[in-house]
């Protein structure tokens, strides 16, 4: 009995260790990398804690990198490589998002990976960029990064909510379609029972010569042109465009200036 308990305990401990390592392999990696030292230690701690909470909540990494320059790399390539090379991203799909703020060229870049690619559409990333840019430009980094955390929380929450099956809604749509179908079918079946119908025309009695056309005039009267907007640039809906990083991994994201 004692042997069984030891084996059971060992297996449970191993299983817990594997699960823990799979979901939080990057626990020791910093989530706020402030190379420019624009945040106070207290602000860094608070933000680190906030991003860590989000990470636990959504099982993905939320990373902020503040540096001077991206060197010869484009901001997007730099953000992608930083995320990949430092081992960020949870699960096998390396789920996570990194926000890169480079002061030299005032670049603001987001790079998404794994499930975060679908969680953040291009328009949503653009919205985040537009929301953060004025604050960063004013030097309000702490406020901007709090907004980043808030927006991440909101967008992922909305995305997950939108992905939940809406069985009640499907049932109601099915009911409406079913009612229409049943009514059309019922009318067809009822129509089979009605055969006494007045003839409104005399088509059966037109002479074999048929119609002798004497006048055939088609005169152009007027023309009217209307225009309609195809798409709105302010729309926040849409898909996520992707690219491949130097490590061969697929990323989403965008880059702009603040």
């Amino acid at each position: 009995m004692k042997k069984y308990l030891i084996v059971l305990f060992t297996v449970a401990a191993l299983f817990s260790a594997i699960m823990f390592s799979a979901s939080a392999a990057n626990e020791n990696l910093p989530l706020i990398i402030d190379e420019e030292d624009v945040l106070t230690d207290e602000q860094e701690l608070k933000l680190e804690s906030r991003l860590s909470e989000l990470g636990e909540k959504y099982n993905m990494d939320f990373v902020v990198l503040i540096n001077t320059s991206t060197g010869e790399k484009t901001p997007t390539a730099f953000a992608d490589d930083y995320f990949d090379d430092n081992g960020y991203g949870r699960n096998d799909t390396r789920d996570g998002i990194i926000l890169l703020l480079s002061s030299e060229k005032k670049d603001i870049t987001t790079s998404t990976s794994g499930s975060a690619i679908n969680s953040f559409s291009d328009s949503e990333l653009e919205y985040i960029e537009q929301l953060l840019s004025p604050q960063i430009a004013r030097g309000e980094y702490y406020s901007a990064l709090n907004s980043f955390a808030d927006e991440c929380d909101k967008h992922i929450s909305d995305y997950l909510e939108s992905q939940k099956p809406k069985y009640f809604l499907y049932g109601v749509i099915g009911l409406c379609v079913g009612l229409l179908f049943a009514w059309i079918k019922g009318s067809k079946y009822k129509g089979e029972l009605v055969s006494v119908v007045a003839k409104g025309n005399a088509d059966d009695y037109i002479t074999p010569a048929g119609l002798t056309l004497a006048v055939k005039e088609d005169v152009f009267a007027f023309s009217d042109v209307s225009k309609a907007l195809i798409s709105s640039s302010s729309s926040r809906s849409g898909g996520s465009s992707t690219h491949v990083s130097s490590s061969g991994r697929t990323h989403g994201g965008r880059s702009g200036h603040y």
Partner: peptide, 9 residues
Amino acid sequence: KTYNVTRAG
């Protein structure tokens, strides 16, 4: 484009 069409026969 709108047309006025006449037929007689």
